[in-house]
Design a protein around this nucleic acid. Structure first.
Lengths: 141, 141
DNA sequence: AAATACATCACCCAAAAGTATGAATTGAAG
DNA sequence: CTTCAATTCATACTTTTGGGTGATGTATTT
């Protein structure tokens, strides 16, 4: 099954569940099984969760931007945006765990990015990497 | 007025407005001026906005972190001759084993020197150490 | 529709780095 | 001669890092 079809089904199911929830709540409300307060509360909670979900989805790119403002990334750079963020934090002397926490990714992901950076710069430890990145102008001194 | 008081007032006003909106809507609903659908829609929209607002607030907080500040170092730190040699090789990106081989000392000795350097510069890993040493003029860039 | 790059995460394993403690030797300074 | 800092090394332990493989979801491009 293609990802496109998958998405349609996925969102279809989500919307169906949401609408069902709302309608069931409405029924319960109209039959006085549920109070208006409970009904409002339910809708509010669900809506807040939706708001949080979508804004985090949308702001995923924004979160990382501050680290990138200091140094403009060349479009033809072999280092990807995310890798550049990791690289910059690396050069500050942070541990992998600290980098992970700052970027809100798992330790494993940080390691994956680092491995990728290492292979791209032809290095095999962090100090060498920072040195190479500086000498090739990828990051500032 | 202190920012603390300001915040209390700010959030108080916001909560008041929100509660008022909800209660007015409820009144309009109960007097059949507003349909249940409109009522639900209103609550949903407001809640989604709240969700978006708070999640962006939270993601802003992620960005500003204490890790990005420069590391303060003691000015009265005295690096011995041998420690300096280790430090210089360290800054070239060599591993402890490589440093040990170059200086004809054991791995343990290199580690000891490094521990000493770390405590003198107030650091706890090699990248931080190189950074601190450069910023305090102990070694060149 | 398929290929590609990117970002994310997991698991495993091995090597390296870092921490703590103790100790022997040596050379310079008081 | 004693004291002290510097250098050397060891042992033991924990944490961090690095390497390799594979998987998933998403977005973009062809």
């Amino acid at each position: 099954m293609t990802p496109y079809i998958k998405n349609i089904i996925k969102y279809g199911v989500i919307i169906f569940i949401l609408l069902s929830t709302f309608k069931i709540s409405e029924l319960l409300l109209l039959n006085s099984i549920m109070s208006l307060d409970t009904y409002s509360f339910l809708i509010a909670i669900i809506s807040i969760l939706i708001g949080i979900y979508y804004s985090t989805k949308l702001s995923e790119r924004k979160i990382s931007s501050p680290y990138l403002t200091t140094i403009p990334i060349e479009s033809n750079s072999v280092i990807s945006k995310r890798e550049m963020e990791v690289l910059l934090l690396l050069s500050k002397g942070l541990t992998n765990k600290e980098i992970s926490n700052l970027l809100f990714i798992s330790l494993n992901t940080t390691k994956t990015h680092l491995s990728s950076i290492y292979s791209k710069l032809g290095t095999n430890n962090r100090v060498q990497t920072i040195k190479a990145a500086r000498e090739s102008g990828i990051i500032e001194y």
